[in-house]
């Protein structure tokens, strides 16, 4: 199982590189950062059958949309033709999420600090309806500077939403700097704990750790998984480089990146 998922993550990374190259769209670094988290969620954790009663995954840091689209395609939730229309004229999928475009795009998002809170509302709704569905939301470390995140944090614990899990893609590299240098980001785990959340800190590229953190019992609390990641993970020249928040993947970049991913 472990090996299989690692292989899947590699395929998703290659798909992202291809997609970024074809589309000439930015945010490839942000997308590569969360591939392992999405792999584990979509291939191990989320209950997707029956579809009408599925668990919900919200990509709150929606600028990593290439990662979601590539994962949905790899999981067979959207088809390759839909994927190919990403960021194209008369295309199928925009750079930030529009829930009316494809199955599996659960919410429209792009402005940070929205998806997380919608997820809390959904988790509350499922509890009200006594449905066993769970909600997962992936937030960024930059996104965690939004006041709305902390507004939601107040209420997620008060409402005892143990069916809600937030995962922070903590690559410490946001749009124009490092979270830890821009603001008093640390101690971020203690902040969540102080808000009444069950907080777990893991290596966000370790599949077993991700799976284990998702399975952890929270005794009625909502969960935050602080996943330490590397922006641009998997492609050496993109890793932990601010410019790959924006840079376009040229043919040369693509060939080099694919070659590297294949030789891993």
């Amino acid at each position: 199982m472990k090996l299989k998922n690692v292989q899947i993550s590699k395929e998703i990374r290659k798909t992202i590189i291809e997609l970024a190259n074809q589309s000439k769209s930015p945010h490839v670094g942000s997308s590569l950062s969360c591939v392992d988290i999405l792999t584990v969620l979509y291939f191990d954790v989320l209950n997707l059958h029956p579809w009408e009663k599925r668990d919900i995954f919200i990509l709150s840091k929606a600028h990593a949309a290439m990662s979601l689209y590539s994962t949905l395609a790899t999981r067979g939730i959207i088809d390759r033709k839909t994927l190919a229309g990403y960021y194209q004229n008369e295309g199928t999928l925009p750079a930030h999420l529009d829930r009316f475009t494809a199955n599996g795009v659960e919410v429209s998002a792009g402005s940070l600090g929205h998806g997380f809170n919608m997820g809390i509302g959904m988790a509350f709704g499922f509890k009200k309806k006594k449905e066993e569905r769970r909600v997962y939301a992936l937030i960024g470390d930059g996104e965690s500077q939004e006041g709305s995140i902390w507004e939601g944090a107040f209420f997620g614990s008060k409402l005892r939403l143990d069916n809600f899990t937030a995962i922070m893609d903590y690559n410490n590299l946001q749009g124009y700097g490092r979270a830890r240098e821009i603001c008093t980001f640390e101690p971020v785990k203690a902040k969540w704990q102080a808000f009444g959340w069950h907080a777990v800190e893991i290596d966000g590229h370790d599949h077993n750790a991700i799976k284990g953190a998702c399975a952890e019992d929270t005794q009625g609390k909502p969960k935050i998984i602080i996943a330490h990641t590397t922006k641009g993970k998997g492609v050496s020249f993109m890793q932990d480089q601010l410019i790959w928040h924006y840079y376009i993947v040229t043919d040369e970049h693509k060939n080099k990146a694919l070659c590297e991913l294949d030789s891993e």
Partner: peptide, 26 residues
């Protein structure tokens, strides 16, 4: 009480939360 919630002085969360709740059929 089961149909009412005071979401406090936190308007951004109040609206996004409501959107999420509406998506579950409320």
């Amino acid at each position: 009480a089961e149909r009412f919630l005071n979401l406090g002085v936190a308007e951004q969360n109040m609206i996004s939360f409501s959107a999420g709740l509406a998506m579950t059929g409320f």
